[in-house]
Design a protein around this nucleic acid. Sequence first.
DNA 1: TCGTTTTAGTAAATCGTTTTAGTAGCATTT
DNA 2: AAATGCTACTAAAACGATTTACTAAAACGA
Lengths: 357, 357
Amino acid sequence: MPRKPRSSKSPMVSFSSKGEAVSLKQLAAHLNLSTTTLSLVLNDAPTAVSIPQETKDRIFSAARELNYRPNYLARSLRVQRTHTFGVIVPELSDGYSSMVLNGVEAVLSTKGYFYLTASHLHREDLLVDLPRMLAERQVDGFIAVDTPIRFEPNLPTVNVSGHENVPGVTNVILNHQHAAELGIGHLYNLGHRNIAVIKGQEFSSDTGVRFDTICAAAAKRQIPIDKRLTIQLSGDSPSPEVGYLAMKSLLATGEKFTAVFAFNDISAIGAIRALEEMGLRVPADVSVLGFDDIYAAAFHNPALTTIRQPLFEMGSLAARTLLERLTEGEDAGIPEVLSVEPTLIVRNSTGRVTQAG
Amino acid sequence: MPRKPRSSKSPMVSFSSKGEAVSLKQLAAHLNLSTTTLSLVLNDAPTAVSIPQETKDRIFSAARELNYRPNYLARSLRVQRTHTFGVIVPELSDGYSSMVLNGVEAVLSTKGYFYLTASHLHREDLLVDLPRMLAERQVDGFIAVDTPIRFEPNLPTVNVSGHENVPGVTNVILNHQHAAELGIGHLYNLGHRNIAVIKGQEFSSDTGVRFDTICAAAAKRQIPIDKRLTIQLSGDSPSPEVGYLAMKSLLATGEKFTAVFAFNDISAIGAIRALEEMGLRVPADVSVLGFDDIYAAAFHNPALTTIRQPLFEMGSLAARTLLERLTEGEDAGIPEVLSVEPTLIVRNSTGRVTQAG
DNA sequence: TCGTTTTAGTAAATCGTTTTAGTAGCATTT
DNA sequence: AAATGCTACTAAAACGATTTACTAAAACGA
């Protein structure tokens, strides 16, 4: 039985080779085949073995000629998978998130995945709304970066630098104890005994462990961290200013110290600025130790000695883990914690202690 | 005619309040209403005036109770709009792109839009493949950042720092002439007459204009840029190293100069490192002028004098423009060029010339 | 009382795919 | 000659919304 005439589309060459998108249905009409056949052939489905090569070639060349582009929306709706992740970060331009994202993207791009980015800016409302909105867009999973989990993780989730123990969430974390050992050990070996510590902002998920492990490493060496030499960052600007202000206020107390263990490179840079403004040279008078090893660290003046976090690797590990959880299924149990190792990078912002503080 | 029995779903209270997603169909069955009615009410369609408030309330509260979440995929497929943009950048962690993205996101998040990010890494294949893949995912438009357009822009496109004249593409660009005037003017006023220039990498879209406008501004002041004092960045690392290497090789030539106009802050920082390694003080012996005003610029040592590009604003302008092109329709004609103004930020890396170079 | 309008909805088509369950025709067994 | 198996396909039902084009009943107007 002949199909009902399709408004005479078939014989026309119709679409210009560089024209608008043509749908599978149009392509099928053009070829006098069913969309079923086209779909099977184009996706190289197992069933397609019975389709003769000649037909396949016809389909392929027509697809090329009419510039057929599958509509991912329709496909995703049908197969219930979007090949898209939702990535939630505090902020984009802090140097930290973008390094992690780089690692995420390096992995995803090789697997045909894309990701939607959303910044929560430390706002509680966004911490619950963004995941919901991303879920409505049917992302296959979440990657959170330094972000508290304020949502029911009913989708596979990996949190980079997450310290909460949420069922269903895999945490990718630095070996903080090792990091503290490296940092305090380095300063200790240089002769420092009065070490100031710049704590992270309250909202940063690393703040707690970072400080605790540093205190433990110091106590272990009989040089407990003095409360009066501890100062906390405040304000959520991603600029060194927060470190600058923190150091200013520490200096104002008049307490003596020969070294500073900063929460991150950004605040270390700010702290150095404050120290130099007071006429203190780095590292001659005060050593400053950073954390993270962002690009700027190596080229700061003085070049920053720092504890390197492998941010790119943490991002790619997060992405690989999420992909695995998706393809392997969760039956095998989901990993709770994946740990990566820090490295001490010695540059010029730390030095041997000269006179007692 | 009664609908065929639906495996007895209707009377059960079924889904737990915090359960899996329920579809509109299920919600409708639960309420003994049609999906049509629900859709009209939930979307507050004009037709819904005839639905009594009582029914509306029933729908709203059931939606809340059963935790109804519209499936954006299905909706987008139907309405042919995804409220999603594709954003194409060279690389994420160069400090530049992420600032622009920040601006983009600030605007999009208030409008219910999301975006997919893709990095082309200056690879020709990705420059043509990524836009196609994003188009298959039915993005509503493109925002490109410092990216050559290697695709038929059959979707509304805005290019930040684009200098090609592609029909259908709106370019958001800095007023380069003004920028060059500010920079050269500043150095000239400080007494500099022998100014070295660090050109950008070949792949950067600003490289050409930046250099030409600088030369023009210098020529206008009778101090034409000497070819032997011009050096070009090479390599696509986003670290200051490229600037360091460039300055090293310039210094190796033995040519004399009292100031350097760098392509951007990153390369300025690298150049300063190279200069200081040679025992030249900045700014006492050589002034260094940066470009962009990334976060690190203010806290570098010495703090960078630089030409500020309003990157955040460029991103948000791009996003606003794209949204407008979408809602207004293209009938009114599309803007070809939107220009933003640079600012001179004077800090400590430039100073009055002391002895003739 | 008859015709019209309003009210309160609904059935079915649609978006562009994938996938399940066939089927018609031919060749090969038994 | 009936049964079986292959080959080369296809019809129709998903996926989960939106939207067009209705309709039955009630209210209203003359």
